[in-house]
Each structure stands twice: as structure tokens, then as C-alpha cells.
């Protein structure tokens, strides 16, 4: 199945998605990778409010390449980064914030349980940064630029961002784990 969804995402938007479906997203997405995840969790611990709203949000595992132009920013290249680096921090993040989708590449480890009934993982083809930039209409804002360009949180307006493959759905199906299991089986058979 192919779906076109708009942010903020609702529970019913993600409920209907099954591993292997194709999704195109429109609306607002937030980039966040290692350092931004760590800061989001730190701020929750210190009971501080975030400068952006993660209710129904889409987090994009991406450290974009931006070009400063007058007072604004232009997206040059913005493909996904390796999501597995955020695996450990994601269950804690989902305990605090109602993030409905994570977009990245390569899959995530041990997150199916924490995503169950509330969130999905969408895979964008890794390295396709020029292609991704085509569907990013503008930079709405940038937060935490002190973390450096790749690690800052970039609030982006996107239109038909995709194709995204549902890698992990909210019903505990994980395409990457399935492929991995088959690969292990194939490995054991190699003479």
C-alpha cells in the first residue's frame, strides 16, 4: 500500500501502516541525531521545556548540509543518517514525547516494543541527499546550532517527502530483523 500523510501525525495514521508499505510525508519534520537526542533527554530530566513541539512529530535522523544565505538557510543536501546510533536513546524519548514517526536509514535495534501502538520507523534510501533536498521546501527554523551544523535540530517544511518504506510498524513487525534472520540462515549454509 502507498500512503500520503500530513504532520502532525495521529495514532490512526500510524496504526494503519504495515511493514513494507510506502509513505510520502508532507508538513513539518525535525532533524535530530546523536547530540540532539542526548539534549532532549537531558532537558526532560531537568524538567525544561523544548523549543519545539514533538507532539505527533516526525523525527528525521539527518545531519543536513546547509548553506547560509542572508538571514536564512538553504538546504543543499539532506539524506538520512544511520539510525542505529539512536537506538538506545529512542525508547526513553518515546516515554516522554509522542513522536509518531522516525525517518532514517539502516533500521534500528530493539525498538519494536517501545514503538508498539504508537510509532513507526520509515526508511529513506541512504545517501540520497540531493533527492531528499528536492522535497524540502524550506527551513522553518534551526534550534541548538551550538551543537554544530550536522547535530543541530533543523525544522523543515517538506512536500511529498519520500518514497519512505515502513521498516518497523507499530505492530512489532521489523523488515530489517526479517532480512537479518534470513541472512544469518544463508550464512550458516555457506560451505
Amino acid at each position: 500500500m502507498e500512503y500520503r500523510l500530513s504532520t502532525p501525525l495521529k495514532k490512526e495514521d500510524v496504526d494503519k501502516l504495515k511493514a513494507g508499505d510506502i509513505v510520502y510525508l508532507s508538513g513539518t519534520i525535525y532533524t535530530a541525531r546523536d547530540e540532539a537526542h542526548a539534549r532532549i533527554l537531558e532537558m526532560a530530566e531537568e524538567k525544561k521545556e523544548l523549543p519545539f513541539d514533538l507532539e505527533g512529530a516526525v523525527i528525521y535522523h539527518c545531519g543536513p548540509l546547509m548553506k547560509g544565505k542572508d538571514d536564512s538557510w538553504e538546504v543543499v543536501a539532506a539524506g538520512p543518517t544511520t539510525s542505529a546510533r539512536m537506538s538506545k536513546m529512542t525508547p526513553s524519548l518515546l516515554d516522554i514525547h509522542q513522536v509518531r514517526a522516525f525517518v532514517g536509514k539502516g533500521g534500528m535495534d530493539n525498538v519494536t516494543e517501545s514503538m508498539k501502538g504508537k510509532s513507526v520507523y520509515l526508511a529513506f534510501t541512504g545517501g540520497c541527499a540531493a533527492l531528499a533536498a528536492m522535497s524540502i521546501e524550506k527551513v522553518i527554523a534551526v534550534h541548538w546550532l551550538d551543537l554544530g551544523m550536522p547535530e543541530a535540530v533543523w525544522e523543515l517544511k517538506v512536500e511529498n517527502f519520500g518514497p519512505l518504506v515502513v521498516g518497523i510498524d507499530s505492530h512489532e513487525n521489523d523488515l530489517f530483523t526479517d532480512v537479518r534472520k534470513k541472512a544469518l540462515e544463508a550464512y550458516s549454509k555457506i560451505e
Binding site: G20, L65, V76, G79, T125, G127, A129, A130, A132, V165
Partner: peptide, 28 residues
Amino acid sequence: PVAKEQLEAILKNIGIASRQKVPMCQDT
């Protein structure tokens, strides 16, 4: 179909990058 789609996205991306003279991946 999923594998084909990934490779086609890569080929499309390579085309855009070389035509527009932008990096093919944000991880330069």
C-alpha cells in the same frame, strides 16, 4: 520491488547531484 526502488532512488539521486552540481550525499 523494494530493492529495485532503493536502487532507482540512488540512480535518480546521482543524476540530480551531477546536473545541479550538489553533493550526492549530505555526509560529504
